[in-house]
Amino acid sequence: MLWVNRIVGVALIVFCAALWQISDDYPEMARLFPRVMFVIIVFFSVLMVGRTFLPAAAAGGSGEGGANPAVMVRPILAFVATSLALAASSYIGFFLAMAVLAAVLVPILGIRSLRWYAFATVVLLVAVYAIFVVVLNVPLTLRPPVL
């Protein structure tokens, strides 16, 4: 966690410095409060980075999930697949895109019980259609807009 805290701390300091520069053109009252916040963020970031050099002080606040960075491969692949499905939904329709997403997640998540998964996905999409499209009138596209 030491190197993570250092990277995050330095990144926040750089980010705040860049935003401070951007806010130069703003009217005085419009930039005052954000700048106060940037100073506070930089102050805490310096403390966070500084703490990593103290023995045992960096022990608190460990992250959730697996500690090995390799465990992040699946979540990142799932996130990319979801983003692509979202982009595709404009062309192939929302429900078809979600069905494709469910299919793409099968190899990513290593799903074994395909029949149960397919059944649950269909039930989920039908429920989403019933609640959001029929009851709440959300304009989710059922089929590709070109059809």
Binding site: A78, T82, L86, M98, L101, A102, L105, L109, I111, S113, W116, Y117, A120, T121, L124, L125, V128, F132, L136, V138, L140
Partner: peptide, 19 residues
């Protein structure tokens, strides 16, 4: 199974924020 929950939460997050 978590696999079902993952797809359910993902789809509901998308639909919920779109709506």
């Amino acid at each position: 199974p978590n696999t079902i929950l993952i797809i359910a939460v993902t789809v509901l997050s998308i639909v919920g924020s779109y709506s």
